[in-house]
Structure formats: C-alpha cells, structure tokens
Design a protein around this nucleic acid. Structure first.
Lengths: 228, 228
DNA sequence: CAGCGAATACTCTGGATCGAGTATTTGACG
DNA sequence: CGTCAAATACTCGATCCAGAGTATTCGCTG
C-alpha cells in the first residue's frame, strides 16, 4: 500500500505533528521551523501543500474544519486518522530500523573526481575543508557551548549531523594530505592521464598508453575486459 | 544559467562519460554500472533518458548519429559540446569545493524519534545496528581484502561511504547504549511523556504536567514561549 | 497615521522523476 | 533446434516537487 508513496519525509513530519494536535498547513511549517527540523527535513511550501493533499487522498489525514480569522484567507485544519497513526508508526520504525541507500552530492562528485587533475582536486578540497571546519565551529558554538539550553532529546539529529561532519572533515583532510605529498595511490597514473589529455591525445590512445605504462595498476581493467 | 538545472547528479555523470567518448544512453548506463557508480549516483532508465533530453535541449550534448545494429532498435549516439565541457567542469568543481545541505532519511527519522517510546527506539536501533555491521563486513571483504584489485583512484567514493558508515555505527551504538542503561539525557521526561500518552491524557494536559514535573529540562520551552 | 517591510497563508505551473511496461535479441542448456 | 532467461534498448504516464508568484495583514517607525 505504501511503497513509493513513502518518498518524501516531509509527509512523515506532517503525520507526526498532527499526532500532537490538529493544525493547518502553514502552522505545520512554522512549527517545524521553530523546532529546527528544517535542518533535517527539506521543507518548502509547494511540497508541503501537495504532500498534505496526497495524505488526505490516501485517508491518512482528514480536514477538520476551515476557519477564517479576521479577513485572512481561509485555513483548513487537518486531523490525523487511525490509519494515519498506523502509517506514521510503521514508516518511522522502518526508517530507524532499516538503513537505506542515501545518495549525497559529494559522494557523486568524488566518484567522478578523476576527470579533474589531481592539482585541481587538491585546490577544491582545500576550499571545502575551510567551509567544513567553519561549519563545525558554528555547531560547537551553538550546542556545545550552552549545555541544556535545548534538550538533547529534541536535538539528537543535529548530534548525528555533527558526527558525520567530523567524519567528512577527517576524510577530506587525509585525502588532501595525500594529494599534497604525492603519496596518494595511483596519483602517477592520474597525472599522466591528464598530461596526455592536455596534449590532445585521443581517448583510445590514452587507454592504450596507460595500460602499457602502468601494467600493474591497470591489471584490473585487462582482467575485466578479458572476462567480458 | 545552470541554477536549478543542476539538481540531478546523473546529468553530471552523463557529461563526464561523454568526455571520454561518444555513447548512446544505454551504453552510458551500462558503463556506470560496470564502474560501480550506481552505488553513488542514482540511476534509473526513466531519469536517464529525460536527463539526456534536457542536456540536449540545453546544448550541452548533441546527437552525433543514429545507428542500427542488426534488427535492434535505433540508438542515438551523443557527443559532448564545448559548453557541455565547461558546464561539467564548473559543476563538478562546485560539488567538490562547496559543501551542500544533504537530507538523509535517517536524519529525518532521528529528528522525529521522540514520538516513539524509548524502549521501542532502542529495539529498532539494535536492528539497524546489525544491518550496519553486516554492511561494514561486506565492505571490508570486498575492498580491504584484495589490495590493488581495483585501484583506489576509481573507488574513492566507496572509501568515503565506508567512513560515513563507521561514523553512523559509532553514533547508533553509543545512543543504543545510553538508552539501554538509562543514562540518556532526558529519558525520564521521554518515558513520562509516553506513559501519559498511553493513559489517554490530552496533549495540552501532557504539556502542562511535563512543564510542572520537569521544570529544569523544560526551561527552554517556557523561555521560547515567553519570548514569543 | 502613512508607508514599508516582514509575516501570514497559500496557489500555480512546468519540469523532474520513477516505476512499470514493451519488444527484440543473444546465449545457454538440454 | 526449441525454449527460457537474461540482456538490450528504450517509452510512457502518473505523480512529485521546486520555485516563483500573489494577496492580505501585522507591526514598526518616523
């Protein structure tokens, strides 16, 4: 029943908030913002209203009343239904218990990295590192500084974010170091590849030359093509 | 010029591959798979063809020829254009140099976690932990085992993935430990909240009682509402 | 009390995306 | 040499979603 409809976590957030009390969409969005959930759950109006619509069509929430305050536009207040509560519990449990493939942009970029030259990649990673370190300092200032200012129970996702940030800093720092010192495995092949490309060598010729010059490093390739 | 059109990293991957040599869409997809890039870049046919279309409309790639092999359906082979190369370089550089907000599902789930009871969350996290550890073992078997089987240069994103996985394991493990031993900050408040909810207490009454019973832990709330 | 920016509260549109479906061909096996 | 699965090579349609746009009202300042 759920399947593909469980794509946008914003829908889950809506269900969770409506468990507390009935709200209208805009109130949902401002509550999420107040609680700093926009840092972990992508929120924009366009999606919010369409997500609310879809939840209603699926019978997981229901309009309770439409009120008009002063001459403001009408607001539709929604309640969660029985099946909405079930869906929320199931979905949230699933997200917590089952790791899912996540695709981050940085990962994608790393996977395509060899297309730039090692020197250029080093330069870019150094820039990234500065940003990441600044972010970490900002985190520490906000949460490390005032203990108990905001209870940990309601901030746990930021703690997780901070851990991932730390891991990324360590990774990027180590990688940059290896590029700087030239100890990165395969950097000679990588440099030669760009040398040839700059010289206007054709892709086929590049592959041929590299396979000759770096027999050992390229053995995986010949094995692959031998098998295929 | 680019802006919102830089949303799907699959488009970047297409540009990168066409830098090597002209290809038709299906060849692009199989090459990505051969190189294990589908682990870092979400790939599905529907998106691939629409992404290729959009790249062509934007003049970043151009159809080179349509060939027919045997009685197979026609295939359109695409080349990258000059502006395509520029766009690729700019985009990839940007992704490497500038950290972007990433929204993972687990983070979203963590941020909504308090809606489940602490006991239930512990149970779910323990399940997650088992999966995560199994994943880590699988990684080690594949890459740690045979050094040089696949050159590090073309696998760097998986190394990054492994680091993030490690960080997540450490985080979840520590959190589960605190829940198990009851040392998690705010766990009493959390438990009481669920006790009241189970007893059918109304949301308003719950908030009132909690504010009374946990004056210190809830100070952030009263401060918030006082200010607003 | 006039004016202006911020907040309230959405709506609309066009493009992005995803999964499922389709039709052919090759290769393996008995 | 028949057939059955896997690989090849897409197409289609129904959602989904992002961002910009709109209209009103509140609150502050001079």
């Amino acid at each position: 029943m759920a399947g593909r409809t469980r794509s946008n976590p914003l829908a889950l957030a809506v269900l969770c908030l409506l468990t507390e009390r009935p709200m209208h969409p805009y109130e949902i969005s401002s509550t999420l913002r107040e609680r700093h959930k926009e840092a972990s759950i992508k929120l924009n109006y366009g999606s919010l209203y369409s997500v609310v619509d879809s939840l209603q069509r699926r019978g997981l929430i229901a309009p309770q009343e439409t009120v008009r305050e002063g001459r403001r536009p009408e607001r539709t207040v929604y309640t969660i239904t029985e099946s909405g509560i079930t869906e929320m519990t199931d979905w949230l449990s699933d997200l917590l218990a089952r790791p899912a493939q996540e695709f981050t942009r940085f990962e994608a970029a790393l996977s395509l990295m060899p297309i730039l030259s090692p020197g250029e990649v080093l330069r870019l990673l150094e820039i990234r590192l500065r940003s990441l370190r600044a972010q970490e300092t900002a985190y520490e200032a906000t949460f490390g500084g005032a203990p108990g200012a905001f209870p940990r129970l309601f901030l746990i996702e930021l703690e997780f974010k901070a851990r991932l940030l730390r891991a990324e800093i360590e990774f990027v720092d180590a990688l940059a170091d290896e590029l700087r010192s030239g100890t990165f495995e395969g950097i000679k092949l990588w440099r030669r590849m760009h040398e040839l490309r700059l010289a206007g060598t054709s892709p086929e010729r590049i592959e041929q030359l590299l396979t000759e010059e770096f027999r050992e490093e390229m053995s995986w390739l010949t094995e692959l093509t031998d098998r295929g």
